[in-house]
Amino acid sequence: MPPKQYRLLDLGPSPAAGPLADEKLLDEARTGPVACLWRADQGLVVPRTYAARPGFSAAQADFASQGWPIHVRQSGGGVVPQGPGIINLSLAQPFSGRPLDHADAFYQHLCGLIAASLLFFGIEARAQAVEGSFCDGRYNLAVGQPARKIAGTAQWWRRITPTQDHPAASQEDHPTQHIGLVHALILVQCDIDQATRQANRLEAALDNPRRYRSSSAISLDQCLNPPDRADFIHQLWLRLESEILRCPAL
C-alpha cells in the first residue's frame, strides 16, 4: 500500500483565515491526513490556561484597543505573536493508541518538513529549546550559535470514538482513537522586538513573572542577504507547499 499523503487545504485568503484557522483540521482529518498553510492579522494567541488567570478579560480589552487582540487557542504552550510576517503550518491526522505514543514523532516530523524547506534557501535549522524565547519548548526550530528561535510548535489531540465515524464498528474493527494536530509558527519577516515587547506586556498585565528576550529569536529574513529578502515570505510559502505534498504522512 502506498504511503498516505497530506491533503493540502485552502483556508481562504490570508490573513483573513484568522489566528485559530487550523483548529478546523481536527474534523477534516477524520478521513485522512490534512495540512494547511495560513497567515493571520496582528495579535497575540494564548492557551486556555491564560484565559483562566485573574485580569485576563481586562487585558484582552486593553490589548484589542491598541491593535493587539488576544485569541485563545486549544493547544498548549505559551503566548505567541501573530501577524502577516508569520507563516503558520499545521498538520493533522488520525492515530491509533495514546497521544504520548506519537507526540515526539509528530513534532519531529513537522520540524523535519520545515527544516528541509529552509535548507533550500541555505538556512540550517534544528529542533531545540531556546532559553528566553516566548513559548519555549524542546521542539522549537532554531538557527545559529548561540541558538536563536525561528519557529515555535504546539500540539492538540482529540479523542474520537468508533461510533462517531462507523456506528456499527467495534473498537477492534476501528482502532483509531485520536486525531492529532501539530502546529508551527514560523517567524519569516517580522519585528521580533515588537513581538517580544507585546508578549512581555501581557505577562506583566497578568502578574506573571515570566519575561522573554528579543535576542533569543530572529526573523528568518535576517538570515538572508538583503537582495533575497523582498519576496522571501512568498518563496518560502511555495517551498513549504511543495514539501507538504512531497512528504508522506506518519
Rank of each mutant, 00 (worst) to 15 (best):
R7M: 10
L9Y: 08
L11I: 09
P13T: 05
S14A: 14
P19G: 03
A21T: 01
E23N: 04
K24D: 09
L26A: 12
A29G: 07
T31G: 05
P33A: 10
C36A: 15
L37P: 09
W38P: 09
W38Q: 04
D41G: 12
G43T: 05
R48M: 06
A58Y: 00
D62T: 12
F63V: 07
P69E: 01
H71K: 00
V72D: 02
G76A: 00
G77R: 00
P81M: 08
Q82W: 03
G85V: 04
N88V: 08
A92N: 10
Q93P: 05
R98S: 15
P99D: 15
H102P: 04
A105G: 14
Q108W: 03
L110K: 10
C111N: 13
G112Q: 09
L113D: 08
A115L: 02
L119I: 00
L119H: 10
A125K: 02
R126L: 02
A129R: 07
V130C: 03
V130W: 01
G132W: 00
S133R: 02
G137V: 04
G137I: 03
Y139C: 00
V143K: 06
G144V: 08
A147N: 00
R148S: 07
R148K: 14
A154L: 06
W156T: 09
W157C: 06
R159T: 14
I160L: 13
T161A: 15
H166V: 12
A168S: 14
S170A: 08
Q171F: 09
E172P: 06
P175W: 10
T176I: 13
I179F: 12
A184G: 03
L185Y: 07
I186K: 01
L187E: 02
I192A: 02
D193F: 06
N200W: 12
E203L: 07
N208K: 11
R210G: 01
S215E: 14
Q222L: 14
E241Y: 01
E243G: 00
L245M: 14
L245Y: 11
R246Q: 12
L250Y: 12
